[in-house]
Design a binder for these strands. Structure first.
Lengths: 134, 134
DNA sequence: CGGAATCCAGCCCGATACTG
DNA sequence: CAGTATCGGGCTGGATTCCG
């Protein structure tokens, strides 16, 4: 209950300052987390620094286009670093920054919640859909 | 380091079972969290059960359409409950379910991370954009 | 008051092809 | 190997209108 009040208070404090979503940390970070691939890439990089092609293999159903775009975005937000090795052919290694690593504990808490509650969520969906014919 | 390995292992375990994103808890929950308004609504409801119009006031820049849709989705996933009072005119109250409340601690961890690191993220963006002219 | 229905613009993102 | 460029479909989500 007090945790809830704290959450709402923090959110509304930022609302009072501005309605611009870009200025509210909660919205800003949630938007980042919400993109289809960013947290998955982060999870893979949490295991080990990886090259572009290794990331493609770790997340098989991502296109090259989206992998590039997601990596650029994570780099722009300071979550990962990009190092180019001028070999032939060139290789590029991505790794978590200190900022990126600092996100891991809260992210892991979320992953654990997702795993432990996923069954309940799926059951709730079946129940809901059963009540509503169309 | 071990936390990272755990994350990747969990993600990849689900990948081994199926590439269908709908079956992977991490993707499933992340998709839900990623929607534009769902976590904001949850945060407001964490403060107190609220009626439809109260939620509109709490999140000023949400359209009625998206508020309805987001509430339905949260209800379908078992995160909130919906109670209709047959007054005139009708009133409807939304409140967190036990499942919804169980998400608050991990969510709050994320909110705290967002607030404490938001300055760094914004600084990283400015730096990145400065290096890349167009 | 609390929606449902419709219309439609914009973007997300996948597929494909090309490059240093 | 590690991208970039371009095209296009589909879904997201805002605006508007109508309803019990």
């Amino acid at each position: 209950m007090s945790a809830g009040a704290t959450l709402a208070a923090r959110f509304q404090a930022w609302q009072g300052q501005t309605f611009d979503g870009g200025q509210c940390p909660v919205r800003d970070v949630l938007d980042q987390i919400g993109t289809k691939w960013s947290m998955l890439i982060l999870i893979v990089l949490a295991d080990a620094p990886s090259r572009f092609s290794a990331l493609q293999r770790a997340v098989p159903d991502i296109s090259k286009r989206m992998l590039t775009q997601t990596l650029r975005d994570l780099e722009r937000n300071g979550m990962i670093t990009r190092q180019v090795f001028p070999t032939k052919p060139p290789s590029v290694e991505y790794r978590l920054s200190a900022l990126g690593e600092s996100l891991l504990p809260p992210l892991q808490a979320l992953v654990e919640w997702a795993e432990s509650r996923h069954g309940e969520i799926r059951a709730a969906r079946v129940h809901f859909d059963a009540e509503r014919p169309a």
